[in-house]
Amino acid sequence: MSTVVAPKKEQKAERTGREVPKYHVVLWDSDDHTFDYVEKMLRELFGHTKKDCEQIAKGVDEEGRAIVLTTTKEHAELKRDQIHAYGKDNLEGSKGSMWATIESAD
């Protein structure tokens, strides 16, 4: 009994024909968190530039939500969970981390 293995070129061509679905990590507005907290969290968890962090924090405040990353589902779930685990702000009344969700980018 012999095993048939497809040539590597055929396997590679087959993989490029399928696109991996993308997901947005959405950060939701919260009155319990300061701009400094949001910007620091985004820098630490996502590696965004200071300017990008400022724009995202402003967008969350004005629009009620902002997309902070678009990636694969597994990576989006990880980043959402990291936001949830980040911890509370030093602001009086802050009860915990900010809220984030993931949604299909399609």
Rank of each mutant, 00 (worst) to 15 (best):
V4S: 11
V5K: 11
A6F: 03
K8L: 13
K12S: 13
A13L: 15
E14L: 13
T16R: 13
G17Q: 09
E19W: 11
Y23A: 03
V25F: 05
V25E: 00
V26D: 02
L27C: 13
D29G: 07
S30I: 03
D31Q: 13
D31C: 14
F35G: 07
Y37Q: 01
V38R: 03
E39Q: 08
E39K: 11
M41D: 00
M41Q: 03
L42N: 05
L42Y: 04
E44M: 12
L45P: 03
L45H: 06
T49S: 12
K50C: 10
K50I: 10
K50F: 14
K50Y: 15
D52Q: 14
C53Y: 01
E54W: 15
I56Y: 01
E62A: 13
E63P: 13
E63V: 14
R65K: 14
L69R: 03
T72N: 07
K73H: 10
K73Q: 11
H75K: 11
H75L: 06
E77L: 14
K79G: 01
K79M: 08
D81G: 15
I83W: 00
A85Y: 09
A85K: 15
K88M: 09
D89G: 00
L91S: 12
E92R: 07
G93K: 06
K95I: 07
G96H: 01
S97P: 02
S97N: 01
M98D: 01
M98Q: 00
W99A: 11
W99C: 12
W99P: 12
I102H: 01
S104M: 14
A105Q: 02
